[in-house]
Nucleic acid binder design. Structure first.
Length: 282
DNA sequence: GGCCAGGTGAAAC
DNA sequence: GTTTCACATGGC
């Protein structure tokens, strides 16, 4: 992936392995709504991020400015998805799935936002998850104004001090409210500490995340994949169960070991492409 | 209007 | 350890 960072803007040269429409609509991220014309906007890491599509490049601007490192990591630009597609195209199913979703990249998203977002996600659907996340930002986030338009950042943990289930009622997240409260409490107390977690390995992070009420196998794996970048994680949801059954004839009990055998440390990518393939192709 | 949703905790075996 | 069930609310 060719890119350069200058004048606080990230330039990404056009490449079939970088397609914003797929990256943001494949179900990993919920705050990058479509905007007018050739510009897509979203909020992450406390900033407005704008992706402008030009003839030969994408220009990515952030306000307030985000560092090159955050943006490059966010879009996973250092990883060679062409090479990954090759490695995963051993069988006909993955070959098709990788071709169908070509252009998807796994975003490296903010930990706290990812934690709450995927707690909201259980037993829900993508439009509704987006609403819960949006409402959380509206109620508790900070306002930023860019070109006369106001946006709300996703709240940092300290904005949710003393959060109660009642406070969350307008979010309409139902029974997940008590899970959110527990997650916030554990983050604020330091029991769940991102700076500690980011130096730990996949299984240790996952084990720690599982101590949060409402975080089970699947949500923990989503956080490991979408925030920590542990590509050996293979979040197994209803769609993936359907995909593994219908495409590979692998039943639920065998998914864990089978995915490890088949995809190894590319499991997370395989998962996201399979999810997108089944979810948006039927 | 009923069924289902990017699941999980708790209670029962 | 595995199975079963309730859970709150919106999308379709």
């Amino acid at each position: 992936m060719k890119y350069e960072f200058s004048d606080n803007k990230l330039h990404i040269y056009k490449d079939e392995y970088f397609l914003p429409d797929l990256i943001f609509d494949c179900g990993q991220s919920f705050r990058f709504f479509e905007a007018e014309g050739n510009v897509r906007r979203g909020i992450a890491f406390g900033s407005l991020i704008e992706i402008e599509t030009l003839e030969n490049e994408y220009i990515i601007k952030s306000t307030p400015d985000l560092s090159e490192e955050i943006l490059v990591d966010f879009f996973d630009l250092k990883r060679d998805y062409k090479e990954i597609e090759k490695m995963l195209s051993n069988d006909e199913v993955m070959k098709k799935a990788m071709g169908f979703g070509r252009g998807i990249r796994i975003l490296k998203q903010d930990f706290f936002e990812t934690l709450l977002t995927f707690i909201y996600s259980q037993q829900s659907n993508i439009p509704r998850i987006a609403k819960c996340v949006e409402k959380t930002a509206e109620l508790f986030g900070s306002e930023i104004e860019v070109s006369g338009v106001k946006y709300r950042t996703f709240p940092t943990p300290d904005k949710l001090k003393n959060l109660t289930i009642t406070d969350l009622e307008p979010v309409k997240c139902g029974y997940r409210g008590e899970y959110i409260v527990d997650a916030v409490k554990k983050v604020l107390s330091g029991e769940i500490d991102y700076n500690e977690l980011k130096n730990m390995d996949y299984l240790s992070v996952k084990k720690k995340l599982l101590t949060i009420k409402g975080v089970g196998e699947k949500v923990a794996d989503c956080i490991c994949l979408f925030s920590f970048g542990f590509f050996e994680a293979f979040p197994t949801d209803t769609w993936i169960k359907k995909a593994m059954d219908s495409l590979y004839n692998i039943k639920e009990a065998e998914i864990k070991s089978a995915s490890q055998d088949m995809f190894g440390n590319l499991s997370g990518i395989a998962q996201q492409y399979l999810f997108y393939y089944l979810r948006y192709n039927k």
